[in-house]
Amino acid sequence: MNIWLKPHRIVLLLMALALVVYAGLSMQWDWVPRYSGLLLHGIWMTIALLITTCALGFLLAVPLGLFQVTGPKPLAFACRGFCTAIRGTPLLLQLWLIYFGLGSLFPQFPEIMDSFLWPYLRQAWPYALLSLTLSFAGYEGEVMRGAFAGVPAGELEAAHAYGMKRMTVLRRIWLPRAILRALPTLNGEVVLQLKSTPLVATITVVESYAVTSTIRQETFIIYEPLLLISLIYMVLTAISVVIFSYFEKKVPVHDV
């Protein structure tokens, strides 16, 4: 039987439909066409920030996690320190420290102001990108540390016993195996990252949440833009969950 056709599900679907109809009829939505361009820009910014910061953050998280497992000790200590600092402070604070801190530091160096980077460094988004990336790296570094450490020693031993170089073991066995272990956690972390993105509105980056603020200020409509934006976040979350569960189901793993 189709999973949507069970009685309780039909009731829930009808209730959801009724809510949508009620919201559509009784609330005020005439502002939507006027702001559709801005809304799309905001959503695009949210998605772009999410994907790039998760991708870059994960690239950083791999060595952060690996060095904590393999050492050498000073490097392991430094990585651990980074992860602890990131996880121990609010993202909002990190964002402001980077934006207001670096942002006021850079103009003091003529070399930077003359460089080709300056047109970018004058804008807000590079700071948003940097701080969200570092935040994701901090959390995922810890996740990857656990994932690397948890790969069964026997599988790594088998790789060495068949003459693999260390880098080959890492590339072919250890890393893919660790990522597989970390997938369910990564899924949750990506969703959390999505919901951290509105913070960048506080440093003037125009993403989904910032757009609703603009609409509120210009039209004095408060509730409807917030509803719409909630719906958008839920849809993005659902998409992320679907993508991850596809990969989780692809390779079933029993750990011995």
Binding site: E155, E157, A161, M164, T168, R172, V251, V253, V256
Partner: peptide
Amino acid sequence: RTRLAMVFQNFNLWQHMNLLDNVIEVPIHV
């Protein structure tokens, strides 16, 4: 090591690969 093949008590197959990939892994990548 590439001339001595070891079979382990706990098999130690690579769990993220199917059987065929387990068998061709070393011939290709080592």
